[in-house]
Amino acid sequence: MTARTAPLLVIGGGQAGLSTAHTARTLGLAPVVLEAGDRPAGSWPHYYDSLTLFSPARRSALPGSSFPGNPDRYPARDEVVAYLAGYAARLDADIRTGHRVERITRTEGVFEAVTAAGDVVAAPLVIAATGAFSRPHRPPLPGLDAFSGTVLHASDYRRPEPFAGKRVVVVGGGNSAVQIAIELAAVADVTLATRRPLRFMPQRIAGRDVHIWLWRTGLDTAGWARPLLAGGKATPVMDTGTYRTAIASGNPDRRPLFVRLDGEDAVWEGGVREHVDVVLLATGYRPDAGYLAGLGALDEHGTPLQRAGVSTTVPGLGYVGLEWQRSFASATLRGVGADARHVLTRLRRAAGHAGTGA
């Protein structure tokens, strides 16, 4: 089996992989990008229909290409997919869709990636850019596995109509959980169940989007800001006031997480039981980097062992697109470019790369 060689191999052709490819070209490297899907859009085509960005278009662009249209609007899911497709088409990079990487090995300083179809690409440097949103997280909630109703993850949710008239419990307290619960509440009886009280962050401050202020103050890209923006608190929900008003009205109602699920019932604190048709888990995602398992690059939970995107166990391996990889913006359209430059610069320096790659 003959391997195609490249100076840099990028796994994943979504926002993290495309920004990495762009940055690599500015550094003189000719990357090969392997994307499992049929188009270079990452997870975006699989999100729910009504999803819009939580940051305005002017703060939602990849390096080298502004987001088209009104810079103060909040682009919808399909606009992001189209933006990524256009970005990929303009890149001077070898992007191969339909190439799912199954495993990566490393011998004498050279990585070899083997795809599901048996193709092999070899490179001295690898960036795992499959991001933080490729593996839906299903927490071990009491009784969940034996629940006789329907259990869905937010990754399976598309639109509210199929849930009309049903009793739905949405589990989660982040932006997507709140947005989905409020959308479902128009057609169903919905409870938003969270471990902690909801934490709202104003979408606009003094007439400007909060992301503009985060950028101007440097908090958006400051690693030290994590305790301030996240810490042990609930994930902040961006809100113009609409979400807070809807929750305060009781439609949907917000409750502490149920004690357990039992058959077709949810058992709440105090022993109150009620029938539930659907439990929808808006409980986030985890990195899907199983193709790195044989390298010793992951911990026992499959989480990358890394510092600021550089592997702490495997020389020549880096990551782009992980949540809080370096900052609040790390897993976002606006943040992946800076992280890609940081990681590539350090990997090349460690490997002694001074010239260009072709």
Rank of each mutant, 00 (worst) to 15 (best):
A329Q: 15
A225Y: 06
Q325H: 09
A230V: 12
R260M: 07
P71L: 12
G42P: 04
G309S: 09
V276W: 00
V187D: 11
A61N: 05
P162H: 08
R348A: 13
P71Y: 08
D265K: 00
A225V: 01
R77V: 05
G337A: 08
E35T: 10
P75T: 01
G37Q: 11
Y47Q: 07
V101L: 04
K233N: 12
V101M: 02
H153S: 07
G42Q: 03
G355K: 06
T221V: 14
D156E: 15
V279C: 05
R196G: 08
L281N: 01
T130C: 10
R96N: 11
A113H: 05
I182T: 11
N251E: 15
A193N: 00
V276R: 04
Y47G: 07
T242Y: 15
L322D: 02
A248E: 14
G355M: 10
L53V: 12
V170F: 05
L144I: 08
G337P: 04
T356H: 13
L62T: 05
T97D: 13
T2W: 12
L333Y: 01
L257E: 14
D49F: 06
E323F: 07
R58P: 07
A116L: 04
D299I: 07
R199D: 08
V32I: 14
A116F: 03
I182V: 13
K166I: 06
A85Y: 08
R348L: 12
P256V: 03
S19T: 07
G284N: 03
V210P: 05
L198H: 06
P75H: 04
A340M: 07
A36M: 05
G207T: 13
V81Y: 14
R244Y: 11
A93E: 03
V336N: 05
S176P: 11
P315R: 03
D145P: 06
G174A: 11
G270K: 06
A329S: 15
V237Q: 03
R307S: 14
L27Y: 06
E108K: 09
T242H: 15
T105V: 12
G69T: 06
R307Q: 15
K166L: 14
D38K: 06
L184A: 02
T115Y: 13
